[in-house]
Nucleic acid binder design. Structure first.
Length: 267
DNA sequence: CCCGTGCCCTGGCGGC
DNA sequence: TGCCGCCAGGGCACGG
């Protein structure tokens, strides 16, 4: 599933192909994916830039920003205009001589259109935390210290730290030596510092490798991330811990599967 | 405000 | 081989 590094890979790849292209037409095949109003507003506008905030992809148009969340399986493909539509292509953007197609088997992805002046002032981009790259660990510590939730739950909440999903939350806790069920209000300043540092390192390493390809996810244009070869615990049930060889355990935290080393990660 | 639960979806897999 | 039921999972609405 795309997390921050995958979205960054999609952003940079896509930007190379659609920058300064004008949207001449849009076809929507799954009505709830994009409203009529959104479609009508952006036809005729040009993609002046593609940016990103956390896991959100942002197409910077002339008067508005189109905010896209890929959720688990959303991807973009570039195809010739006359290519037959795949049944999972729900939105097709037409440019002068090719198309950009949004493909999503689970239909969980979202398209939100905002006036430029509102983009960061209203949901979904308002009230998000900072990414680990510019998150002050003391600020993070103050937020976490007030919470009686499991650390895994805290790391997945984009209002606490921005950009981690299930995979990188597990990896961050593993490198930090913290059990996914440890309560936020038991965390020390030092541990908060470690979490922010490791989250930053992991995301940087993954971006450098083009993201992680896991389960069914590959990014646009067939780009396959290679970070999965660097995972320490996620999806590695019963495999030896890279540090101490103890078999990796799995538990469910707030409905999310969580992998950890019982010996290396303390409650 | 805080926290937990259910929902949206469908391909893939286990069980029989 | 086929069918049924269940699971994954980010973000949000909703309820206590």
């Amino acid at each position: 599933m795309p997390e921050l590094p995958e979205v960054e890979t999609v952003r940079s790849t896509l930007k190379h192909h659609v920058l300064n292209k004008t949207i001449s037409q849009i076809d929507v095949f799954f009505a709830r994916m994009m409203s009529e109003e959104t479609k009508d507003t952006i036809v005729g506008q040009t993609i002046n830039d593609i940016s990103r905030l956390g896991k959100y992809l942002i197409f910077n148009l002339d008067t508005h920003d189109l905010i896209v969340h890929l959720r688990m399986e959303g991807r973009f493909f570039l195809k010739p205009t006359d290519d037959i539509r795949d049944k999972h292509e729900h939105v097709i953007f037409y440019f002068y001589d090719f198309t950009m197609r949004y493909h999503d088997t689970r239909k969980f992805g979202t398209f939100d259109l905002r006036k430029k002046e509102d983009t960061y002032k209203v949901p979904p981009l308002s009230n998000l935390a900072r990414e680990p790259f510019d998150l002050d660990y003391i600020d993070f510590y103050k937020v976490v210290k007030k919470k009686n939730q499991a650390m895994k739950t805290i790391l997945l909440d984009q209002k606490n730290i921005l950009g981690l999903g299930n995979i990188y939350a597990d990896e961050t806790l593993f490198r930090s030596g913290i059990h996914p069920l440890k309560k936020g209000n038991t965390i020390t300043k030092k541990q908060a510092e470690q979490i922010v540092k490791h989250a930053r390192d992991i995301l940087n390493e993954s971006i450098a490798l083009g993201g992680t390809t896991i389960r069914t996810y590959t990014s646009s244009l067939g780009v396959t991330g290679r970070f999965q070869h660097s995972l320490g615990v996620h999806q590695k049930l019963n495999e030896p811990c890279p540090t101490c060889q103890t078999p990796i355990m799995k538990t469910v935290v707030n409905g999310r599967s969580s992998f950890y080393c019982e010996k290396c990660q303390k409650r």
